[in-house]
Simulated scan of single mutants.
Amino acid sequence: MDDGTLFLIIFLGIPIGIGLLIGIIGIVTAITSVEREYDATNKLSPEQRRQIKEREKREAQEYRKVKKQFGWNDKYGECYVSNDIGKILWVKNGRWILFNANDVIAYNVIERKHNETSHNGLGRAIVGGAIAGPIGAIVGAGTGFHSGDVIERLGVVFTTKNGSRYEILEYEGNGRAEKMESEIRRHNRLVRTFDEILNGKIN
């Protein structure tokens, strides 16, 4: 073997060896992380595991009980809103909070879209607490969609007395407005419900 060949083998072998070493370190790190999580879980005593299961069971039962207060027509996305019973059941990623209607002090309308022709991205936001008159918020809500519009997001963000904000997401995707009449009507109804919650019944 001449010196040139030896040099080439060494030159090519060093980065390959480094790559293998990095790969091995990554695998060992991942295995260690999984083992730690497994150890942490298994450090729970049988009594602690039983308490966790009991708590989860109680929470599930309580959620079903709360949800029964609402009608099927009160559901928007994962959440439920009813001005008839004066309550909002906010749900996201398995978490839920029940609000009284009088906890809400403002809301924003989410209407995000773009137009296939103009390629303009348009958004819309209304703060309910700043609307003059009980019908102010719903004028034009959901009616600003035109041929070629693609709807990306529909929903409402409401603000509570302590300043916290919660999103009710009805729709997220890329839907053609002309094929989403029922979704738009439902969205209008949600906006109207929040307007009534803040400003009183609309005749």
Rank of each mutant, 00 (worst) to 15 (best):
V28H: 06
T41Y: 15
E183M: 12
Y76P: 01
E183F: 13
T5K: 12
I85H: 01
H187S: 02
K67W: 01
I105S: 07
G26K: 15
W72T: 14
V127Y: 14
D2R: 08
P15K: 12
A30H: 15
G175F: 02
E111N: 03
G129K: 01
R185H: 11
S147R: 02
I131P: 00
Q48M: 09
I105D: 01
L198V: 03
G148D: 06
E183H: 14
E56P: 01
P134V: 11
I151C: 00
G77T: 07
N188K: 15
L21P: 06
T143S: 10
N73Y: 09
E111Y: 10
L190H: 01
E47F: 04
A130W: 11
S82R: 06
R185D: 10
D2C: 12
S182F: 14
K65Q: 01
D3T: 11
R64D: 03
V104Q: 06
E178N: 04
G17E: 09
S147Q: 09
N120Q: 09
I138V: 10
R49N: 10
R55A: 14
S182M: 13
D84W: 05
M1I: 13
K43D: 11
G142I: 04
Q69G: 03
A177F: 04
G123C: 05
Y171T: 02
N73R: 09
L122C: 03
G133W: 10
L12P: 04
N73E: 12
I138L: 07
K113S: 05
N199M: 06
A101H: 08
N102Y: 11
A101V: 05
Y63A: 14
G140T: 04
V28G: 02
G148Y: 08
N174H: 12
P46K: 09
D103K: 15
G129V: 11
Q61A: 03
R36M: 15
L6W: 07
I24P: 06
I24Q: 14
V66N: 05
E35Y: 15
N93C: 07
Y171F: 15
V156F: 01
D149V: 09
K57I: 06
N120M: 08
G26A: 13
V104P: 01
K87D: 05
A101R: 08
Y171N: 02
E62V: 04
L190M: 04
R153M: 03
S33G: 07
Q51Y: 02
M180R: 00
E172W: 13
I10L: 15
A141R: 02
R50V: 06
R49C: 08
E167T: 08
E172N: 11
F99Y: 13
N162F: 08
C79Q: 03
G129Y: 07
N199G: 04
W72Q: 11
L12M: 14
E172V: 11
I97W: 04
A30I: 10
I85T: 02
I110C: 00
L198H: 00
E178K: 01
N42P: 11
T41S: 14
A137W: 05
G133T: 05
E183I: 09
I126C: 05
N108D: 10
Y166C: 00
